[in-house]
Amino acid sequence: MENTTINEGKTTAIISYFWLIGLVIAFIMNANKKNSFASFHIRQMVGLTLLSILNGWIVGKFFGTMAAGIVGFGLFVLWIIGFIGAIQGEEKKIPLLGDQFQEWFRNM
């Protein structure tokens, strides 16, 4: 990826990692002039946000708060990996599900 593409999309990519409000802001910022670097990180964060919501509803309800806390901690670690990748200007996929997030949300 070109250095100019990364520099232009870096701010949007970083903003996308500030949970739901940051994700919405990043999506709006990237809507007019699509940046492939920003889009990559937006897709990663959309996947993490959906997993986080499902963790609270499904895991928390059926397996208890302890299980939801453990899964939540794992999601937090994945969030840190993605966030550091955005800061460093890398398209670092989130382990385990990064490829699927890119495929499932490719139209974003």
Score class of each variant (00 low, 15 high):
51 L>E: 04
98 G>Q: 00
98 G>V: 02
108 M>G: 01
56 G>K: 10
18 F>A: 06
59 V>W: 04
37 F>R: 00
17 Y>T: 08
54 L>S: 07
37 F>M: 06
7 N>Y: 11
26 A>I: 02
25 I>E: 06
41 H>L: 05
46 V>M: 13
62 F>H: 10
58 I>W: 09
64 G>T: 02
71 V>I: 14
63 F>K: 08
49 T>G: 04
108 M>H: 05
55 N>Y: 13
10 K>F: 11
92 K>E: 01
19 W>Y: 13
107 N>C: 07
74 G>V: 07
34 K>C: 06
76 F>S: 15
34 K>I: 11
24 V>G: 09
108 M>V: 15
93 K>E: 15
64 G>F: 02
19 W>R: 06
37 F>S: 02
78 L>F: 15
36 S>F: 09
87 I>L: 11
26 A>G: 03
28 I>M: 09
10 K>P: 08
28 I>L: 12
31 A>N: 13
38 A>W: 00
35 N>G: 09
5 T>P: 06
103 E>V: 13
62 F>T: 10
2 E>R: 11
28 I>H: 04
71 V>G: 05
98 G>D: 00
53 I>G: 07
102 Q>E: 14
65 T>P: 05
98 G>K: 01
6 I>H: 05
36 S>K: 12
44 Q>A: 05
9 G>S: 08
26 A>K: 00
73 F>G: 15
99 D>A: 12
87 I>V: 15
45 M>T: 08
100 Q>R: 12
84 I>G: 01
12 T>H: 07
79 W>A: 09
41 H>S: 02
105 F>A: 04
82 G>N: 07
8 E>F: 13
58 I>N: 03
66 M>K: 11
79 W>Y: 13
89 G>E: 00
39 S>F: 09
9 G>A: 07
10 K>S: 11
25 I>A: 14
43 R>H: 03
97 L>V: 15
53 I>H: 10
51 L>N: 05
98 G>M: 02
53 I>M: 11
22 G>A: 12
108 M>Y: 06
21 I>W: 06
86 A>Q: 00
24 V>F: 15
82 G>W: 03
41 H>C: 04
46 V>D: 04
53 I>P: 04
73 F>T: 12
47 G>A: 05
93 K>C: 10
89 G>P: 02
91 E>S: 12
23 L>C: 09
4 T>A: 15
51 L>K: 03
3 N>M: 10
105 F>Q: 03
